[in-house]
Amino acid sequence: MLRFFLKRLGLAALVAFTVSLISFSLLFLAGDPAIALAGEGATDADIEAVRIQYGFDRPVLEQYGGWLGNALTGDFGDSYYFKTPVIHLVAEKIPITMTLGLCAISFAILLSIPLGVLAAVKPNSLIDRFALFLSVIGQAMPSFWFGLILIVIFAVNLGWVPVSGSDSWRHFILPTVVLGYYATPAIMRLTRAGMLEVLRADYIRTARAKGIRPGKVLFKHALRNAVIPVVGLTAVQLGFMLGGSVIIESIFALNGAGFLAFESISRNDFPTVQALILIFSLIYVLLTLLADLLNAWLDPRIREA
């Protein structure tokens, strides 16, 4: 188990390092940052001054080394736009996005796993059709459009929830539903397929032959084996959600890190963008690591891999 853990941890560290390289080099993908920073109508001399002021004239490797060294201590430099430390900006916004992400993934799990199990227990039944219907809709409908529809119905017409903002928990309801629903089809279908397969397994017959009660056969013996692939998928979906929250936060003017990323990109605020990309990526790497550990706990055979 310890060996497995160390192996996964090493892998995660390697991925994190690669990600840091990529997020740093993004700065140069968008063209010469000095030109962008100097703004329109700047003279060559202005641009040169900006280049020296921000250190863009140094060798790339040196810049990366400096940036990474600072980033490791939580110093991502100052925002070009706000002129305040990026880390303060991010620390203020990340909790909002994390709250949204966790609420959304919980919503998705609570909706899709029970539905997937029920659909597998009674394939082709009414509930199975209903689950299929939900997942087709979920895949066919763009999330921004679904978000707008929910706003029109529940915020504007019914007035049950606020239209936009991030001041109370009620502001999180619609974004949670929209973002969570987006992950539901994939999780539900994988749960259903996994359960269908596991329910045919010999060890399920053994459990029934022992006289284990039907509910326990389903949730103890079958579900644990069926959710193993679902765990990995859920981690990936949560990662997608953090990405998707850029759109959702913009629609609902939920003032989180996604919204900040969206605005910072349009403002050419590179330090902020770099920091957000690195943090989002690290969260993603961490999620994958957690999923691996959860799977190792669920399936003893994985621990020895």
Partner: peptide, 12 residues
Amino acid sequence: FQEPMTSLNPAY
């Protein structure tokens, strides 16, 4: 049962 290899639950 006939199949000892698959008749036990791998997770418990």
